[in-house]
Amino acid sequence: MATRVQALDVADVAARPHRYFRRMYVWQWPIRVFHWINAICVTVLFSTGLYIASPILAPAGEPYTHFVMARVRQIHFIFAFLFVVNFLWRIYWFWMGNNYARSGFPFVWRRQWWRDLFRQVGDYLRLKRGHVHLGHNALGGLSYTIFVIALGWAQIFTGLSLYSETVPSGFWGRLVGWVIPLLGGSFQTRMWHHLFAWGFVFFAILHVYIVFYDGQQYKNGLVTAIVSGEKFYQEGDIDHDTWLS
């Protein structure tokens, strides 16, 4: 049954916040840890990646006194492995975590999911407060699926296959070496790896903005939630997440 929420009485909210805002522990600590490690990894990987693609510092003198490119690559590789482990951890937690840990999954076979998706797009565009979720809304979930999960897989496969080029017959080569011929050779693999990396930048800009915007619009504590794990909701807001389970 459809209900309508009354316009907030701002004065009342200020006077009796507990009446309006309830707290809910949504993001369990593994999710939060994943988020921040991922954020750090992506930042480091992107900036070191840019340098590797087009190194600009040119130290003078004999080469044995410098190790710039090698060091940058080393950092890139270390954070790449951290990224991979963290990523796999998140996937593990998809099953082990609470329902919210699964809330980003694109339930494309459910009409409700699609309805939610379009409504969310409409809400954002029309600057409406709209529908409130405690987990991910369909649009958010979709964008995480594309820009975190799919892109993450793509970077892991292309990245590790490039990493394996040193010893094609070694462990990594056997594991992911097939990616290179699939994409039309090492050079093309590198090109895709580089292009995909920009996907994170694109995503990060939108993500950060939406988080702040959403937090402001919904007054749901979205920004602090990724630190504390807790989100706020108003009375009567909660049940729409039922399509999740």
């Binding site: 309508r4 009354q6 409406k128 619009q217 807001d237």
Partner: peptide, 10 residues
């Protein structure tokens, strides 16, 4: 403030 009115809820 219209913006705080949520849409239909199912």
């Amino acid at each position: 403030d219209e913006s705080h009115v949520s849409a239909d809820r199912d």
